[in-house]
Write a protein that binds this DNA or RNA. Structure first.
Length: 305
DNA sequence: AGCCAGGTCTGCG
DNA sequence: CGCAGACATGGC
């Protein structure tokens, strides 16, 4: 065994799907390389791999892994709690072991500002670009790895976010970073206040709307009652839970609030887990109006002019 | 090529 | 309020 490497035994009654948890779109900095999942957490490079109920890691400690992966949380109890209809039931069967991570609030805040109106592959690139341009070199990896930059590193005056190709989101990132840099402890306070107040506080940041706020609450503050409504969840909910209003486009903020409140009422205090299982099973659930990626057409490369 | 993406903000009526 | 457009960029 290499130095700095540890092994952690998962309890048989506490399932984990490491790969799914790291790749489902709640975190953007994990990559699978040579059988290991590698990601920068805080100031160091973590490597993690799962073989059955055996978790091997380096660059961190067992308590830190347990905390990050929320292994202290009773997943079967949570899944039993949200298992209230056949649709979410299918999602649970497909994605069992998916856990909501405990990620850094600041990094999650910026990540989901970047996550608006784009796709997951590009979000990953934007976050990687921010780290490369403004982060610090990370211990334990090669010199291409960087920690996520702090608020001061991204605040307005330190500018030149333009090189990170964030599009119009760059001013939101800079604006939010400036506020957080100016009020140290602001995010810490958000962890302590009631859900609705925390949500309102997040909504006051530039670039954070209802959907981003709920993602940040769920993934960054581990507020499991948050129910983010994005384009996929809207489709799924309209398909299976709340019929879209007649005649309209069905994608207004009012409609999203309706869906969010339904989700919270229908799934209960762990609505966020239900949301994430539905999101991760979105292709499986694809029905009317849900465009699935579909099978790749192979063997007929497009004509090269 | 063109539609769409883990939406938000702004400026109207 | 509530709604329509704009918005930078790139994945597919």
């Amino acid at each position: 065994m290499l130095p700095g490497m540890g092994v952690l035994r998962l309890r048989d009654d506490q399932p984990l799907d490491l790969a799914l948890s790291l790749s489902c779109g709640q975190a953007f900095r994990w990559e699978q390389r040579e059988g290991w999942w590698e990601g920068v957490v805080g100031a160091s490079l973590w490597k993690v791999r799962q073989e059955g109920n055996r978790l091997t890691y380096s660059g961190t400690t067992a308590p830190a892994v347990r905390r990050y992966l929320a292994l202290d949380e009773d997943l079967p109890v949570i899944l039993a709690s949200i298992d209230r209809d056949p649709v979410v039931h299918r999602s649970i069967e497909a994605c069992r072991g998916l856990r909501i991570l405990r990620q850094d609030p600041w990094e999650t805040l910026i990540s989901f500002i970047c996550a608006t109106n784009t796709n997951i592959p590009r979000i990953r690139k934007m976050i990687a670009s921010l780290a490369r341009c403004f982060g610090s070199r990370v211990t334990g990896g090669d010199d291409s790895l960087y920690s996520f930059p702090g608020p001061e590193d991204l605040s307005g005056s330190c500018g030149d976010l333009g090189t990170c190709r964030l599009g119009y989101r760059d001013r939101y990132v800079a604006g939010t970073a400036t506020i957080v840099a100016e009020y140290p402890g602001l995010l810490d306070r958000i962890t302590e206040i009631p859900f609705d107040q925390a949500r309102a506080a997040l909504l006051s940041f530039p670039g954070v709307g209802p959907k981003a706020a709920d993602c940040i609450l769920l993934f960054g503050f581990h507020r499991l009652e948050a129910f983010p409504v994005d384009v996929w969840i809207r489709r799924i909910m309209h398909e299976y839970y709340v019929p879209p209003p007649h005649g309209t486009k069905g994608s207004s903020e009012k409609e999203d609030r309706r869906i969010r409140e339904f989700g919270r009422a229908h799934f209960g205090v762990y609505a966020g887990y239900a949301q994430e299982y539905l999101f991760c099973a979105r292709e499986l659930l694809g029905g009317e109006g849900i465009r699935s990626p579909g099978p790749r057409i192979s063997g007929t490369p497009p004509a090269r002019r």
